[in-house]
Simulated scan of single mutants.
Amino acid sequence: MKVLVTGGSGFISGWVRKELLARGHSVLVMDHQDRRQQLADGEEFFLGDVRDATAVTEAAAHVDGIIHLAAVLGTQETIHNPRPSAETNILGSLNVFEAGTQYNLPVAYAGVGNHFMRLQGTGCYTITKSAAEDLARMYNAYRDGGRITIVRPVNAYGPGQSVAEPYGSSKVRKILPALSCRALVGNPIEVYGDGTQISDCVYVADVASTFVTALEHTAAHGPTEKPVEVGPLESVTVNDIARLVAEEATRYTGREPVAIKHLPMRPGEVPNAVVSADTTTLQQIGMTAADFVPLDEGIHHTVRYYAEHWLPGYLAA
């Protein structure tokens, strides 16, 4: 297949593109920023924004399937500025679903692992991504050509994920870069809340494999009955994740593991929340979380990446 990947220059998208190429597919990368210089063999670039219905329809006319990853991210960030996430995550997704339906294309849509929290007054990111899930179900039920499988990863992590302030330029804080960078420079790891909440993490290569498998399954058999949830078999607390990162960082710093510092919960975060995946849903596409990268191994790869690729530049700045 030739596959359109929206938001094609992002963190998860980069791993999805590698997985598609490894399986013999070709890729049309769509992004609103011109990143065509980053293309690999087997990839083409389409400059466009998913909020532009004409651009999405034009891109869809040249492919055999779509993996829709374009989104405005953030928890408290989208609370203070909700309009961009509403425009991209809802209207942009509507454009993708409409174009996919027009051309009878299989679509794998990136839902959100904490979808249930939209009922608890959480951030605009969760609300808007969940609204797009409702649209996907509508297309599958009532529109000829609606072939959309929802894929819900929990927190994806791994090498290459962007680093937020004060250690990088990203505006959105992600758990593993935030913990890893603090530990590597010897600062206490900051955990919001008491750290007993469950916020499961899944290695990005497994997320990418799931998206591609979900698209291939949808092309052959139609959309899955339930959303495909992507996460580990066993849940751990945020404190557990922090401890693993702190211990892994000592391999590179030679210092004792840094302390864990607890901060008040941020707007949009729910105390004692349990963000985990129903991994039995992977069976719908012939996958199992038993084959996923274990958390300790994934954290080893991730902390090593930041130690080797981020830390030298940060120390030299």
Results as ranks from 00 to 15, higher is better:
residue 44 E to K: 12
residue 114 N to L: 11
residue 32 H to D: 15
residue 245 V to P: 03
residue 81 N to Q: 13
residue 89 N to W: 07
residue 244 L to W: 13
residue 235 S to C: 09
residue 8 G to C: 06
residue 95 N to P: 02
residue 314 Y to C: 01
residue 133 E to R: 07
residue 251 R to L: 14
residue 239 N to P: 00
residue 176 L to E: 11
residue 270 V to M: 10
residue 59 A to D: 01
residue 213 T to R: 15
residue 19 E to T: 14
residue 280 T to G: 06
residue 84 P to D: 05
residue 222 G to A: 13
residue 45 F to V: 11
residue 155 N to S: 15
residue 281 T to K: 04
residue 214 A to H: 02
residue 302 T to I: 03
residue 297 E to H: 01
residue 159 P to V: 01
residue 151 V to T: 04
residue 67 I to N: 10
residue 183 A to K: 03
residue 273 A to S: 15
residue 4 L to P: 06
residue 106 P to H: 10
residue 32 H to A: 14
residue 134 D to G: 15
residue 210 T to P: 01
residue 75 T to G: 12
residue 134 D to T: 12
residue 256 E to L: 06
residue 307 A to N: 01
residue 83 R to W: 13
residue 104 N to I: 11
residue 291 D to Y: 11
residue 260 I to E: 05
residue 231 G to M: 07
residue 66 I to P: 05
residue 253 T to I: 07
residue 64 D to G: 10
residue 228 V to I: 14
residue 52 D to G: 08
residue 157 Y to E: 05
residue 264 P to N: 02
residue 211 F to P: 08
residue 146 G to T: 09
residue 96 V to I: 08
residue 180 S to C: 09
residue 267 P to R: 05
residue 79 I to T: 02
residue 313 G to E: 11
residue 133 E to W: 04
residue 240 D to Q: 12
residue 17 R to V: 14
residue 168 G to K: 00
residue 175 I to Q: 15
residue 288 T to C: 07
residue 193 G to T: 00
residue 159 P to E: 09
residue 73 L to P: 00
residue 272 N to I: 00
residue 249 A to C: 09
residue 127 I to P: 05
residue 26 S to D: 14
residue 254 G to H: 00
residue 257 P to W: 06
residue 1 M to F: 09
residue 196 T to N: 12
residue 60 A to C: 08
residue 130 S to A: 14
residue 206 D to H: 08
residue 254 G to I: 06
residue 218 T to P: 10
residue 68 H to G: 00
residue 219 A to I: 02
residue 80 H to F: 15
residue 102 Q to D: 07
residue 196 T to L: 10
residue 188 P to W: 07
residue 229 E to Y: 11
residue 63 V to L: 04
residue 160 G to I: 08
residue 234 E to L: 15
residue 251 R to S: 09
residue 138 M to E: 15
residue 48 G to C: 04
residue 155 N to H: 12
residue 189 I to N: 05
residue 83 R to Y: 14
residue 63 V to Q: 03
residue 197 Q to D: 11
residue 221 H to R: 13
residue 56 V to T: 05
residue 23 R to D: 13
residue 174 K to T: 14
residue 293 V to A: 08
residue 77 E to Y: 04
residue 288 T to V: 05
residue 63 V to K: 02
residue 57 T to Y: 10
residue 146 G to L: 01
residue 212 V to M: 06
residue 111 G to M: 05
residue 109 Y to I: 02
residue 195 G to V: 09
residue 284 Q to G: 02
residue 260 I to C: 01
residue 275 V to Y: 03
residue 56 V to Q: 02
residue 41 D to V: 13
residue 273 A to R: 14
residue 151 V to F: 01
residue 141 A to K: 03
residue 86 A to L: 14
residue 249 A to F: 04
residue 70 A to E: 06
residue 95 N to G: 01
residue 293 V to C: 15
residue 16 V to D: 01
residue 13 S to V: 04
residue 295 L to Q: 03
residue 40 A to P: 04
residue 317 A to P: 05
residue 307 A to D: 00
residue 240 D to Y: 13
residue 252 Y to E: 06
residue 244 L to N: 08
residue 181 C to K: 06
residue 223 P to W: 13
residue 317 A to M: 13
residue 259 A to R: 15
